[in-house]
């Protein structure tokens, strides 16, 4: 029972990160029908810049509480990722907006490779450890262990999701985003600048992704140039699981995928008699992806995917 609870908790932490990254995929898809495969790299860049900033701050001898230092680092890394996403859309996707769907998909993969290699040139090929600015303290929760950092990750993720919900449902920008997702031509007739809305979608998605990247790196204590690829693919699976294009689907899909993966990792050894170890946990995201695509291609909360894709 303790293992079960422990894995659920781990899954929620993992899932929070997936959900935030998945939102970036799903928002962009919802508006321009593009799978932005470079989104995972934006997440990685967010983590890497944060690590660089933290290292720099400690070299400068800044003596402030860990949380403040981390926030300072993120005030640089998160906007940096937003700017990166803004230019990515402008350079790689906007010129191809009227091209057939395959063309921007290929530039997305191209951008992803470029960013990965740039990251390797800047930060090297190996792992960068996340400076321990925050004292991680384990907290006992009904026999399971959860750290203060993990609790913070879950709280921040929930706050970000509530914030996004408010933005999309209640603000003028959010309503314009939804209107643009329904019908770009008519949204233009309302005086909505489609280019502006699409830019904002990329920028918001990148902001959430960068925060998720920091969470992931802080939780694992390290990051590397490849982390965006696998994290991106899993978050993409989560977005498909929830119903791509649907914001609440991405949130639900992310959390669910994290829990599924975590539970599977906890029990796979027992289930296969030790044949497969917990390091096989990565396959579950993709098993889930395949099952969803076979049995419910529109995802849990999705609608009309077939019509759009």
């Amino acid at each position: 029972m303790e293992i079960f609870l422990q894995q659920i908790l781990n899954g929620l932490v993992l899932g929070s990160v997936y959900a935030l990254v998945a939102l970036g995929y799903t928002m962009v898809y919802g508006i321009i029908g593009l799978i932005n495969f470079a989104h995972g790299e934006v997440v990685m860049v967010g983590a890497m810049i944060t690590i660089s900033m933290l290292t720099m701050f400690s070299a400068m001898g800044i003596q402030l509480p860990g949380v403040v230092v981390l926030l300072m680092a993120m005030m640089i890394s998160v906007p940096a990722c937003m700017i990166l996403a803004y230019f990515m859309e402008k350079v790689a996707y906007r010129p191809l907006r009227k091209a057939q769907k395959l063309a921007p998909l290929i530039t997305a993969i191209g951008i992803s490779i470029i960013l990965q290699n740039l990251a390797m040139m800047i930060w090297g090929r190996g792992f960068k450890s996340f400076p321990s600015v925050i004292d991680v303290e384990p907290i006992d929760f009904m026999g399971a262990t959860v750290t203060n950092l993990q609790i913070a990750i879950m709280i921040v993720a929930v706050l970000m999701m509530l914030g996004l919900w408010f933005l999309v449902e209640r603000t003028k920008l959010g309503k314009a985003m939804r209107a643009t997702a329904v019908n770009q031509e008519v949204a233009g007739l309302m005086g909505i600048s489609i280019n502006h809305i699409i830019s904002m979608t990329f920028v918001i998605g990148a902001g959430l992704g960068a925060i998720a990247g920091v969470m992931r790196a802080a939780n694992y204590g390290q990051a590397d140039a490849y982390m965006g690829a696998i994290l991106g693919l899993k978050a993409f699976s989560a977005a498909v699981l929830g119903g791509i294009g649907n914001i609440f689907g991405a949130m639900a899909g992310g959390i669910l995928l994290g829990v599924i993966e975590s539970l599977a990792a906890g029990y796979i050894g027992d289930l296969t008699g030790g044949f497969l170890g917990s390091h096989y946990q990565d396959i579950f995201a993709f098993i889930v992806l395949i099952l969803v695509l076979v049995f419910r291609p529109s995802g849990l909360l999705g609608e009309r995917v077939a019509e759009r894709a």
């Binding site: 209107a179 997702a181 329904v182 949204a187 309302m190």
Partner: peptide, 14 residues
């Protein structure tokens, strides 16, 4: 060309 997934009020706001 109404926005089907927006409410009536939201359509008017747009």
């Amino acid at each position: 060309g109404i926005f089907g997934r927006l409410t009536v009020t939201e359509n008017l706001e747009m």
